[in-house]
């Protein structure tokens, strides 16, 4: 029996179906998703990324931060993200509209970073964490990113950008351009704006079954 042509046509139809359902349908759907214009604030959300933030996102991508960090705050019924203070609300698709490379991540070896800009106030905190995580957060299993910093001899006055870390006397530690961009990106990660689709708060696990039963009863 010569089934070659049937296998070929079947395989083609199957992949075409898979592509239509998984890729094309979403391309169409996401095409209609736009930033939300807030007439009260006179601005659109999410806010566009300034240049340094976009460069920082590229640093985040090329260093592979997503190997250990996710960028998705999950609903109240899907774990302890909100209780842990990783976000004020769960992430929604609209939050990521300006990300050139969306880095949802798939393993939480470190904490979620989607809302990290709201958790750390000053760039100095981020620099400390990147330069010496073990000192900034005792017990942390994050590797140090010393190569994002330059150790230089102090000539004249100490630079105002120098990190407050222990180095040999007469020397200072200065963040490089890449470190500055990365920290600008991390500080930008602050999903606090309340979109129409975030107004609904999902009930926690125990309550959710009742809510579902209630809805079905209606």
């Amino acid at each position: 029996m010569n089934r070659g042509p049937y296998i070929f046509l079947g395989a083609f139809a199957l992949l075409a179906f898979s592509w239509t359902a998984a890729i094309l349908a979403n391309q169409l759907g996401y095409g209609t998703l736009t930033p939300h214009y807030d007439a009260m604030e006179g601005k659109s959300f999410p806010a566009p990324q300034p240049g340094i933030v976009a460069r920082g996102a590229m640093v985040y991508t090329d260093l592979g931060c997503a190997a250990c960090h996710t960028q998705q705050v999950r609903r109240a019924d899907l774990g302890g993200d909100l209780t842990r203070g990783w976000g004020e609300r769960a992430s929604v698709a609209r939050d990521y509209l300006h990300e050139k490379t969306v880095q949802l991540g798939h393993n939480r070896i470190g904490p979620d970073l989607r809302n990290v800009g709201a958790r750390y106030e000053s760039p100095e905190d981020f620099y400390q964490l990147l330069y010496a995580p073990e000192q900034a957060l005792p017990g942390s299993n994050m590797p140090a990113y010393r190569f994002l910093f330059e150790e230089s001899k102090i000539s004249g006055e100490r630079s105002k950008d120098a990190l407050d870390v222990a180095v040999a006397p007469g020397y200072q530690v200065i963040p490089t351009e890449r470190a500055r961009s990365l920290v600008a990106y991390l500080s930008y990660l602050e999903d606090v704006y309340a979109y129409p689709e975030t107004q609904y708060v999902y009930p926690e696990k125990e309550a959710s079954d009742d809510a579902a039963a209630e809805e079905e009863g209606q």
Binding site: Y30, L33, E197, A211
Partner: peptide
Amino acid sequence: LGLATQIQDKRF
């Protein structure tokens, strides 16, 4: 499909 991108769960 468009509105569906904003709906992540059946309860919404």
